[in-house]
Design a protein around this nucleic acid. Sequence first.
DNA 1: AGCTAAGTACACCGATCGGTACCGATTGGG
DNA 2: CCCAATCGGTACCGATCGGTGTACTTAGCT
Lengths: 189, 189
Amino acid sequence: MTELEKGPQGARRGRGARERILSASQQLFPDQGINCTGVDQLCAVAEVSKRTLYQHFTGKDELIAEYLRRFDPDIMPGVFDRADLSPRERLLAVFDIHSSLCPFLRTSVELQDPGHAARILARDHKLAFARRLTEAAREAGATDPERLGEQLALLLDGASVRSRVLDADTFATAAAIASILVDNAIPTA
Amino acid sequence: MTELEKGPQGARRGRGARERILSASQQLFPDQGINCTGVDQLCAVAEVSKRTLYQHFTGKDELIAEYLRRFDPDIMPGVFDRADLSPRERLLAVFDIHSSLCPFLRTSVELQDPGHAARILARDHKLAFARRLTEAAREAGATDPERLGEQLALLLDGASVRSRVLDADTFATAAAIASILVDNAIPTA
DNA sequence: AGCTAAGTACACCGATCGGTACCGATTGGG
DNA sequence: CCCAATCGGTACCGATCGGTGTACTTAGCT
């Protein structure tokens, strides 16, 4: 009766194999990296046969792309639309997320082919994210919202990759910079 | 039989194999990544037999570490010691280097083991680099040199990794931020 | 000369990679 | 009830990975 999710291959009554595979990807890729995670291990964790995986995805490359696509819709869920915060606070709230290495950055570094679908997705994601920051900056009354958005995006990526190499929390530093930038970019602040 | 001597091996520059291996590493690792560069290809480019490589290095891991160690001594050659620049200009001159993805960042992302010698080296390098920035900030008269040094280091790493994913020059953005930070950190500016 | 260290060439190893073929069990819809 | 599609298990494929063993050739130094 309830029509479940529709797969490209017509998984009409899918037993959830596709979901389990994606779930396993989201569990293994961030921890072990993409290149260091084999298809066999992916199947083992997902409790899925290898054959099933290749019925849902043409190959590992497509799986990686779909794995990234899952992150896209919920960019920073509940940050940009918090009504309890002032526009300025909303700009800085992004830095409260003490995250690990951003999956899009990791993918862009690990994959070599610049034309790989996943790297295109990563690029699009970063552009979209900067756009959302720009939008928030405009609402906050920044004189040059686009510039401020790009600046804040760079701070986030810097903190993300730097936390990886230093094994320390670098988001506080980024937040401090962001605070200065916001103050400088918004008149009557 | 005194047949021809197996090709033009007579003029082989027998010595200096280690140097050629390291040179090949510096040529291949940045372009193809570390995990995607095999030992065989490394040997081919270095014009070195596989046996020779393993006589100079215990394994690929040690080669990676030594490859990184080569970058260490010449951090930003001729930037921190330019007498023709004011201390403030010296702080900002670092951002004129429109570099590609920092090898230390790339290594930290590609290698999974946090205890890998190369990742320790990368961490040490980043700490040392921030220290040099801190020193330069102190000479420039910053009120909190350590803080400014860490901030500038984060900006550089952010620009580096962001240039990778966006395939664009992001160092101008970082330089603009740096200029603001420096102005804010140095009194009587 | 003659010895030794360094380098080369090439075959080889076990492990793992991404990906495929086949087969039997399960399951839902007509 | 039967058909067709999905799924799991498993063995398998060729390629490549990092790393080794062996035998031969060279360069440098007394």
